[in-house]
Amino acid sequence: MNINQIIYFIKHSLSNIRHSLLVNFVTISTISIAILIFSSFVMIIFNLTNLVSKFEDDVHIVAYLNDDFVSGYENIKKNILKLNGVNRVRYRSKEQALAIFKSSLGKNDRFLDDIPHNPLPASFEIRLENDFKSKAKLKGIASALKTMRIFDDISFGQEWIEHFHNFLNILKVIGTAIGAGFLFAAVFIISNTIKLTIYARRDEIEILKLVGATDGFIKAPFLIEGIIQGFLGAIISIAALYVLYLMFLAKIQALSFVGINSTNMPFLPPKFLALVLLFSVLLGMVGSAMSLGEIIKG
């Protein structure tokens, strides 16, 4: 293949598109919708995965001290630090706990004045090594703490993270199923568009064959047409996704308490966008290639 042939292929695939604008419009729209739905799911899953891994980084144990213990905190802290997997330990006294609680109440803290004594327990916030953040390991550390018989309660936030993981997995399955359905439809529509083009150009294909064109030479413009459809479909869907993303951010930022912004909920990174583009181009090629067997016949 030389540069003249490549120019010929591109010229003819563009002319194919120009000659059947409506059909190509429908095809490219279908690809855009398929890729938009697919990449929306990718973005949602990408952001939720990021979010959950941030929460996982934050996983720690809080051990609430029995009120009978009013001294010896340093020794307790040392003993906790000796446990396998413990990274850092911070003591929070009853007074500190109350102060934090008060500040979280804001203007409504007055009712605390009526309480005769501080009901909040002192606690140890226990930070763990990264390898010790799984549910099983957390449970191991918690039961080791229990054997010290000085804590009323031991809590760790792993439960709901596991629930969140399950939710994420369900979302992945749904996303994959819906995405696959639309992608299948897109491939089907592309292959039919190309079939229509092949049918419209059957005289030309016959003549090309008779004057000695190779199968590859005849097929190339149709493959390129599929690639162009895939490429344009991806560009349109990425642009639409970005617009939707900006609209979503604008809406959610208005609800200031949610605290979501473009930093903690970023758009798909360039690497993902490149993959979406590549995937869409492949989709166009596959859809087109599926119809090209027709050319060999006869």
Binding site: D203, E204, I207, K209, V211, G212
Partner: peptide
Amino acid sequence: PYLRRSIGVVFQDFKLL
């Protein structure tokens, strides 16, 4: 295709586009 490139054919029905 390579055989056909070495042969010119004038068809009865011309086969022009």
